[in-house]
Simulated assay, not measured.
Amino acid sequence: MEEAPKTLAHQIGGIQNDALRFGLHGVKSDLVGSHPLDVAHRSTIKTHEDMKRKVLANTYGSAFPLKMDLDRQILTRFQRPPGPIPSSMLGLEALNGSLDDFGFEDYLNDPRESEVYRPQDMHHGMEVRLGISKGPVCPSFV
């Protein structure tokens, strides 16, 4: 005899076409992929990181890049719960050396300070983080 599962499979918010929660669905994002320069930029960054790892391994030994990976994993776990105050990830930025980078948000504005930005629902964000619900954490990133 086979036992029936004791839990029912449910999808709370699992439907991506939920216009009330995620806004209207855009077809253009499904048809058009990322820009070729974006792909080239990402591959250049990955190649640069691989070369940096090899230089560190040759200079300080093979354990040093592994220690840096463990530090990176630890620093990516510390986040605030989803809500109005975003996680700054200052320790991770210091480890990666991205504190010295000058991005567009430094001279234009942070996209979260825009008039069209919708703040994320804290409850839905925690449901997505815990795996209870599916979908984007913040509806403005659809």
Rank of each mutant, 00 (worst) to 15 (best):
E2I: 14
E3D: 15
E3T: 13
A4L: 15
P5C: 11
T7I: 15
H10E: 08
Q11Y: 12
D18S: 11
D18L: 12
R21A: 07
R21I: 02
G23K: 07
L24Q: 11
G26I: 08
G26T: 10
S29V: 06
S29R: 08
S34P: 10
L37H: 09
D38I: 03
D38P: 05
V39G: 06
A40V: 06
H41Y: 15
H41Q: 05
R42I: 05
S43D: 14
K46H: 14
T47K: 13
H48D: 03
H48M: 01
E49G: 00
M51C: 02
M51A: 08
K54P: 05
L56V: 12
G61N: 14
M68F: 05
L70C: 03
L70D: 00
I74D: 02
T76M: 13
R77E: 09
P84T: 09
I85W: 08
S87A: 06
S88H: 15
E93V: 04
L95F: 04
L95V: 00
S98N: 09
L99H: 10
L99G: 04
F102G: 00
G103T: 03
Y107A: 01
N109S: 07
N109Y: 11
D110H: 14
R112S: 05
R112V: 01
E113P: 06
S114M: 12
S114L: 11
E115W: 03
E115C: 07
V116C: 08
V116R: 04
P119W: 08
Q120I: 04
Q120N: 03
Q120D: 02
M122V: 09
H124Y: 14
V128H: 00
V128W: 10
S133N: 05
G135I: 09
P136M: 01
C138W: 00
S140E: 07
S140N: 04
S140Q: 03
V142K: 06
